[in-house]
Structures are given as C-alpha cells and as structure tokens.
Simulated assay, not measured.
Amino acid sequence: MSTPTFTAATLPSNDNVNPYAFSVDLNGRWFAQKGKMIAYYGRIRFEALSAGPLDALVAASFHSPLYAQDWIVAEGQGKLLLADRGFDVNSFDLDEGNLTIRAGNLLAFEPGLELKQSIIPGFLTLIGTGRFVAASNGPVHFVEPPIRVDPQALLGWADCPSPCHHYDHSYMRGVLGAARMVFGVGGTSGEEHQFDFTGEGTVLMQSSEAVMSDDVMLRDLEGQIGMVGTSGLQRLQQSISQRLSAERQ
C-alpha cells in the first residue's frame, strides 16, 4: 500500500487530507488556535490578536478575552494544514447558525463567524455563517434532544438551549457520594452526572469519555478567581488542600 505524497497543488482544498489533518485553502484570513498548524505552503504570516492591524477584525469577530492568548490570525495565500495530536479532525459549516463547542476542541474558524465565550465553563460559541474546524476524541455523532450526555463525551450543541446539570441524587445521598463531594476523590462520572438537553436542536458527541485537555477548564476557573472574596479564597484553598491530600494517598 503506497502512501501519497502531496504538493501545494495536490493537497485537498478546504477538506480533510486524512481523518487526522485538514487542509485550509487560505486566501485572506482565518483564526487558528496556537499549536494546531502543522505545516503550510505559500505566503502566510501569523499574527497575535494583539497586533495593531488586527484591531478591527478582533473587534468584529473575537469576543473571548479569557482565551485570546490561545489564538492567532493566519493571513495570506496558500495551503494551511491543521491537526491536533492525532485526534480526529473535521470541518463544519454554519449558515446563520449558533453553535457552542468545547474550547479546547476548536482548532480554527473563518472571520465570517463571531466567537463568544459561553456561559458554560470550558465552551465557546460561534455565531453566523462560515466554516470552522474541530478535533474530537473519536468520530463525532449528532443526536437530537431530549437527551442526557456524559460531560466528557459532550463536544457541543447547535441551535438549542444551553444544557442543565443532572445529578443522580440516589448516588449523591449515599455514603460514597458524600465522601466524594467533600474530598473530590475520583471526580464524577457520566453515571451520576450528565448534561441534560431539552428543546429543539442538535447535540454533538465524541466517541470517548476522555477529554482532550484539562487546560481549558483550568483557564475558566482562573478567570473566575477575581470574583471571589477573601473568605471564598480561603475556603477554596482548603478544598484544594483536601483534594491534593486525598490524591497523594
């Protein structure tokens, strides 16, 4: 079985090279998450969102200061190859749509889409018309509400209300559940905690309960520290100390 050798002319145009890499036919600008570009052909430059010439673009399309340091703008003409550590990569098209996606899984998007920070920690929302590229731990499945989804398997949702948390209260009332709530041992699994979706729309699930990165959730927690008072910070410090102690046992 021979392995194909690509050139700038033979690479796909705005399509997958294989299940793990995507080729953007760049003619202008795209937003891209840092570290997700693996190669490029052509005359392409990469600028931080803080670059002066990008002020108008950022003001129109990027509204998530918590994640601004994670993104750059690719500008120019050529083929831009995107990938993420061997995870599945796919592109999706929005047509006057509204889609919320796990922040760490969003690799790139066209400036025609407007990015905002979701009210759900760890997620970003894309609004408008355009294409975006996302990674997933395994193939993506599309399902309709009403449905309850394991938090780690949830990739995102489109054109439907934000989910609610659902907990198995019989588990929470148990002795083991109480111990886990106090000490945070082992976290919560999909069997006792789910995201509950209702109404119309589409829910996107990945084929695994393994989240690709914890960095995004930590970023959201750090972003909320500034709203916590002294007593809250002391309580948080105590909870973290208990959790670290339990993890070392």
Score class of each variant (00 low, 15 high):
Ala246Ile: 14
Ser189Phe: 02
Phe142Val: 13
Asp196Pro: 01
Ile120Gly: 00
Ile119His: 02
Met1Ala: 09
Asn14Ala: 08
Asn105Phe: 04
Asp220Ala: 13
Glu222Arg: 10
Val216Asn: 03
Ala68Asn: 06
His169Trp: 15
His166Phe: 14
Gly78Arg: 05
Lys36Gln: 15
Gly78Thr: 06
Gln77Glu: 15
Arg131Phe: 11
Ser245His: 09
Lys79Pro: 10
Leu26Tyr: 05
Arg243His: 15
Gln194Asn: 02
Gly226Cys: 01
Val133Ile: 13
Asp70Val: 10
Asn16Phe: 07
Ile101Thr: 00
Asn14Trp: 14
Val24Asp: 02
Gly223Leu: 05
Ala246Thr: 14
Trp157Thr: 07
Gln249Trp: 15
Thr10Leu: 07
Leu11Met: 09
Ser136Glu: 02
Ser162His: 12
Gly112Ala: 13
Asn98Asp: 07
Phe92Glu: 10
Ala59Gln: 01
Glu75Thr: 07
Asn105Arg: 00
Asn18Ile: 13
Glu110Cys: 08
Asp70Gln: 08
Ser23Val: 08
Val89Asp: 00
Trp157Leu: 05
Gly130Phe: 10
Trp30His: 04
Arg219Thr: 12
Phe195Ser: 01
Lys116Gln: 13
Leu106Cys: 00
Pro161Ser: 09
Pro4Phe: 10
Leu126Phe: 01
Ser162Met: 11
Asp220Trp: 13
Glu247His: 06
Leu94Ala: 02
Phe22Trp: 02
Thr10Asp: 00
Leu233Ala: 11
Gly232Leu: 11
Val17Asp: 00
Gly186Leu: 09
Gly42Trp: 07
Leu80Cys: 10
Gln206Tyr: 06
Ala210Tyr: 05
Met37Glu: 07
Ile120Cys: 03
Tyr20Gly: 05
Leu113Gln: 06
Arg243Ala: 14
Gly130Leu: 10
Pro53Gln: 10
His169Val: 15
Phe183Pro: 05
Val175Ala: 12
Gln234Asn: 12
Asp15Val: 13
Arg180Pro: 09
Ser241Lys: 11
Ser13Ala: 14
Val17Glu: 03
Val17Ile: 14
Thr3Ala: 03
Ile120Ala: 01
Leu82Tyr: 02
Leu107Ser: 06
Ala56Tyr: 09
Tyr40Gln: 08
Gln237Glu: 13
Tyr67Ile: 15
Thr202Ala: 03
Phe183Asp: 10
Ala153Phe: 06
His166Asp: 14
Gly138Lys: 06
His63Leu: 14
Gln194Ala: 12
Phe123Leu: 13
Asp25His: 10
